[in-house]
Write a protein that binds this DNA or RNA. Sequence first.
DNA 1: CAGTTAACCTGTCAGC
DNA 2: TGCTGACAGGTTAACT
Length: 325
Amino acid sequence: MPELPEVETVRAGLAAHLLRGRLGRTEVLDARSLRRHPGPPESFVDELAGSVLLDVARRGKYLWLLLGTEGGAPEVPGEETRPVLPRGLVVHLGMSGQVLIQPPEAPAERHLRLRIPVALPDGTTVEMRFVDQRIFGGMFLDELVAPADSLPTAPRPGAGASEIALPLLPASVAHIGRDPLDPWFDDAAFRRRLLRTESGIKRVLLDQTAVSGIGNIYADEALWRARLHYAKPARSLTAPQTRQLLAAVREVLAEALAAGGTSFDALYVNVNGESGYFERGLNAYGRAGKPCPRCGAIMVREPFMNRSSFRCPQCQRAPRGFRAG
DNA sequence: CAGTTAACCTGTCAGC
DNA sequence: TGCTGACAGGTTAACT
């Protein structure tokens, strides 16, 4: 479910509500949501308790809470700096994960898996809840390491001076590439990657090491905007086509982010439980049997990588020798 | 090495 | 009213 716009919406919500909050002891209702945690659930609970949330960062579809020590505070230039534990609370939403901020007394959600009390600086306490129907997502603690390219983790638009942007990311996230909205995304390197592979273009868009944050919805949307077939060999894209594709990816991600993400049902929601409204902005995904908004041809759904691809048969012609299925 | 496939899960919906 | 199979926004480990 959640791709970059949805995950970023969650990240921004957590940062807006929980910064400098102190985490309490996690109630683990389903240990499968801690599957990727290196150790038993008790160690997750013990290590998390008492830490302070200094920042919330994101790489592709992963986000992590930067944790400080007891009494820790964000580093401020000119002030004596406090030691920051090199740890992050990593969150991945998988296909159906949600992170909600709820009053502690709010009734339990149907698929509630973890509840983490957070004592806020204003004296109130809320709960950060992890809700996940399919349990493909989860939370885990991980050490922070320097990224392979040694460049900073991206500062976010509108990031306040109090927000720190450490050039660190969780070790388990280090293999994930930068997303197309990241100021340090390398267009030329992406182009070289396309030329180096035998794969079709959609396969590369979904490869989180090549470019992160894109999933099945936004891959189809970007390909529709760029008038490209999902199976077109990546290495056959011309330089202008590559530029147009990246422009299309950036457009659709930015528009979806501005709309709060895409939601077909109550499965995707922000930290307040509200759905985004970008579903109205979709031109391709889920529109099999409906007319192409651009040319009117009837759009089709085709099997692709054990899921589906949606395209306009007129605007997005199959490459030579291609057969679907 | 790059490229596939199976596995991880629960729920909904269409068709019989 | 079941039952079955297809399908759903993702990633990783284990194959070829």
